[in-house]
């Protein structure tokens, strides 16, 4: 049984300095800023987290929900008036990325590897209603391949201050090593033994562009082979969060629930992903792998509460 190996972490918001942002920054401008930084060869020199929490007010638009449901063929999975879990992530992602693109951020945004993602979907999220979104980074930590950081997002109902949704994304930067910290050894992992295939996802070569069109995440490594190669990838790869959306499609129940996904290896496009779904008591386990190479792509779970 393949289970996601998710770090155990809690949100720590004490002593963070609030930075209010009027409008969610566009991802394109963040990536642009980063690209410009690369060209100017100005590497961020900080070795500690900035201790800030960025906040804004935004809505999960009906348009986004419609587009997302069309892309994932997930229409009607959740009630008409509550947003799919991943649209909350998409809405907040611009703010998080802007925060990470700031010069004071210790890890370079470019080349950052998304290792894990965990979401606490605590309450139904209204569509087209103002939401308070907060994001911060915590736990800069050594990793056998570099340095990891947790990026947290919390979404509140602005009138009641009720926490509706929160997420933790674990990112790895392979180009930064924390000074003084000892590199932990590479953990031993059981060799992957493919379970029975219960589904198969056909990921066409344009799926990166299509998810980018919906999410606004136009990271070049997802868009085409040419842009991916320019950034040192062998070919375009699928958005990890597309896989998350795919595994959630048809499985989102009324809140509360949590889900988590661990990305083991990138899904190079186009590809067929062999998938196993299985129930284990109060949770569903979803495993995706490359059947030909017998290589794990991701392991995920959805847990009802």
């Amino acid at each position: 049984m393949v289970t996601p190996n998710i770090i155990d972490s809690d949100p720590k918001t004490e002593s963070l300095r609030i930075i209010s942002v009027n409008e969610t920054p566009s991802l394109t401008s963040s990536y642009g800023k980063v690209a410009a930084g690369v060209i100017r060869r100005k590497r961020p020199m900080a070795v500690s987290l900035p201790g800030t929490c960025w906040e804004t007010t935004d809505v999960i638009s009906r348009q986004l929900v419609d587009d997302y449901n069309t892309l994932l063929s997930a229409s009607g999975d959740v009630g008409h008036n509550s947003a799919p879990s991943l649209t909350a992530h998409i809405t907040a992602f611009g703010l998080s990325t802007a925060m990470m693109a700031e010069r004071g951020f210790p890890l370079p945004l470019l080349g950052m590897v998304h290792l894990q993602h965990k979401v606490w979907h605590m309450s139904d999220i209204p569509i087209d209603q103002p939401l308070r979104i907060a994001t911060w980074a915590q736990n800069l930590a050594p990793h056998h391949a570099g340095t990891t950081v947790e990026i947290w997002v919390q979404i509140f109902d602005p009138t009641t201050d009720k926490l509706l949704w929160q997420s933790m994304a674990l990112y790895l930067s392979q180009s930064v090593k924390l000074p003084g910290a000892e590199q932990p050894p590479r953990p031993a992992r059981e060799p992957f033994r493919p379970p029975a295939m219960t589904a198969q996802w056909h990921l066409p070569k344009d799926i990166g562009r299509r998810y980018a069109a919906v999410s606004g995440d136009r990271n070049p490594i997802h868009l085409s082979n040419i842009t991916a190669k320019a950034l040192g990838m062998p070919s375009a790869i699928a958005h990890g969060m597309y896989a998350a959306g795919r595994m959630l499609a048809g499985r989102e129940t009324p809140a509360p629930y949590t889900w988590a996904i661990e990305f083991a290896s990138p899904m190079r496009l186009p590809t067929k992903v062999a998938v196993n779904y299985r129930h284990a008591n109060d949770r569903q386990l979803i495993t995706g792998w490359n059947a030909r190479k017998e290589k794990l792509n991701f392991a995920a779970e959805i847990r009802l509460h």
Binding site: S73, A196, M197, T198, A199, Q200, W201, H202, A249, G250, V275
Partner: peptide
């Protein structure tokens, strides 16, 4: 639709 597997692949399982 929901699994992407053809009927034959399903039956094979």
């Amino acid at each position: 639709v929901r699994t992407g597997l053809s009927m034959g692949e399903h039956q094979a399982l």
